[in-house]
Design a protein around this nucleic acid. Structure first.
Lengths: 163, 163
DNA sequence: CGGTCTTTGTTGAATGATCAACTACTATCA
DNA sequence: TGATAGTAGTTGATCATTCAACAAAGACCG
């Protein structure tokens, strides 16, 4: 792009690498715990959480994708697998015949409720409890700034929307 | 496990969710940029970086796996694909006949050098430049604490080492 | 109405990651 | 030396994710 690259300073590079490592560390630990103790593969937990918090434990696919930062394609596959487990089912949307509504089943809610304590404990072990309350506060502010920055433009929106 | 779950406080949950979002945001953006501009799929960049910084631009597979926080299996597959591109080649280790040494080729180094400026720019856009210098410093300290905590035990070491 | 554009969601192929099993070699110890 | 255990790395099956293409329905406009 430009001929002059603003390289990272030593401190910036150090922070970047530590940040990458920290994220890997936290997510590897939480994923491992969830799969081991609840058989919920990775990000499916988040889908269940968002559904559980929605009005009738149901959301339009697009809404759910936005909330979970899943692409539509990914969500479609994921919901198909959750449906196989009986944790979610698809309903037609009454107001928009294109639409599909993902509905959390009682089994799905039960699975989520059973998984939650272990997951929360792991989040504490991996993140919250290794930081001081002040650091937790700082991390919240920092994360908000990053999210607000939109990661510098391309938010990985969805299929075929680059360029 | 235990009957008493220490749930997250509102602030803690808020921070946790923001942190998850922030990480997704940053890594989605950096991955997208790298693939788009350099055709380097996701974490391969990190492998190339570690090799480029090693003594003869070469590392034992196990060393490389540790540095990149890859499982041995994942690394083996990844190096196989990098080898197909001509960016890395495998040599036998002279001192340990089990060992393999991954050697960065000149083409690999050139690909890395070509990709670096765009990647650095994206890291700035996604992370560094949306934070104040003080926040960058704080994030470094926080990340170090998280890494030191080892994510609460299970460090996702490798194959068949759970339980 | 009829045409075009956009949105919604799915599908299948291709790629990447994980998991369990395996070979081959080294290390330890009797 | 021989037995046993541990380490290095690979492989193939399985599953998750991405990408491009697609069908079906709404939205807009003449």
């Amino acid at each position: 792009m430009n001929t002059t690259t603003r390289w990272l300073t030593a401190q910036e590079q150090h922070t970047w690498r530590l940040f990458v490592q920290a994220c890997q560390s936290v997510f590897a630990a939480t994923d491992t715990q969830l799969v081991r103790d609840s058989g919920i593969p990775h990000g499916y937990y988040e889908i269940l959480v968002h559904l559980s918090e929605a009005p009738c434990r149901a959301l339009r696919m697009t809404e759910l994708a936005r909330a979970s930062t899943y692409s539509k394609s990914r969500l479609s596959h994921a919901v198909a697998r959750l449906e196989e487990r009986g944790w979610v089912l698809r309903r037609d949307c009454p107001t928009d015949r294109r639409g599909q509504i993902a509905q959390l089943t009682d089994e799905g809610y039960a699975a989520l409720a059973a998984a939650a304590p272990g997951h929360v404990a792991q989040v504490r072990k991996s993140l919250i409890d290794v930081l001081t309350p002040e650091q937790v506060r700082q991390l919240g502010v920092i994360s908000a700034a990053i999210v607000a920055g939109g990661a510098g433009g391309s938010l990985a929106c969805d299929d075929a929307e680059l360029d």
